[in-house]
C-alpha cells in the first residue's frame, strides 16, 4: 500500500476519484499547511543556487530575454534529464509548501491513472519535508 499525505480539502478531491484509481492507496493526514508570507518566499528565491549546466543555460537565456513569451520557449528547450537532485531540492525549497499545495490540489483534479497518484504522493512527501523544516 502506498501513502498520500493529504489535507482535508485534498482528501475530498481524492475521494471523488474513481474507485479503481483509489484502490491500493492509503490516505494520511498532512495536517495544516503553514502560512507562507511573501518575505520568506522572496528570501528563498534570493538564496536559490543552481549548478546543473542545463539550468545555468536556462537562467542565462532568461537574463537575456525575460518576456513570458520567451520564457515558454526557454522552458521547452531545456533538458532536465541531467539536472542534479540538489538542484531539484533547491527549486522545491524555493516554491515552498503553499505553492506546492496549489499544485497538488490541481493535479488531484486531473488524476487518470495510478502513475498520476505516484507523482502526487512524491509531492506530498516533499511538502511534508518542507513543513517539518519550518517546524523543527
Amino acid at each position: 500500500m502506498q501513502s498520500l499525505l493529504l489535507t482535508s480539502s485534498e482528501k475530498a478531491l481524492f475521494s471523488a476519484l474513481q474507485e479503481s484509481v483509489r484502490e491500493g492507496w492509503v490516505v494520511e493526514d498532512a495536517g495544516t499547511i503553514p502560512a507562507d508570507d511573501p518575505a520568506h518566499r522572496m528570501m528563498r528565491l534570493h538564496l536559490m543556487r543552481l549548478h546543473s549546466p542545463s539550468l545555468a543555460s536556462f537562467q542565462a537565456a532568461v537574463r537575456a530575454d525575460a518576456s513570458p513569451e520567451s520564457l515558454a520557449a526557454h522552458i521547452a528547450a531545456t533538458d532536465l534529464s541531467m539536472v542534479s537532485d540538489e538542484d531539484f531540492t533547491e527549486m522545491f525549497f524555493a516554491l515552498g509548501p503553499e505553492v506546492l499545495s496549489f499544485v497538488i490540489a490541481g493535479l488531484l483534479q486531473h488524476v487518470a491513472r495510478d502513475q498520476d497518484l505516484e507523482l502526487i504522493a512524491g509531492l506530498t512527501v516533499i511538502r511534508d519535508a518542507q513543513i517539518s523544516s519550518k517546524q523543527s
Binding site: 528565491l45 534570493h46 536559490m48 543552481l50 539550468l55 536556462f58 537562467q59 532568461v62 537574463r63 525575460a66 520564457l71 526557454h74 522552458i75 531545456t78 532536465l80 534529464s81 541531467m82 539536472v83 531539484f88 527549486m91 522545491f92 524555493a94 516554491l95 505553492v99 499544485v103 490541481g106 493535479l107 507523482l119 509531492l123
Partner: peptide, 23 residues
C-alpha cells in the same frame, strides 16, 4: 527528469521559480 513533458505543471513552476530567482 525523465518524463518532464508528462508533468508540465510541476516542471514549469519549478523552472519559473528558477527564472524569478535571476530576473
Amino acid at each position: 527528469k525523465n518524463f518532464a513533458k508528462k508533468h508540465p505543471v510541476v516542471t514549469v513552476l519549478l523552472m519559473a521559480a528558477a527564472a524569478v530567482a535571476v530576473v
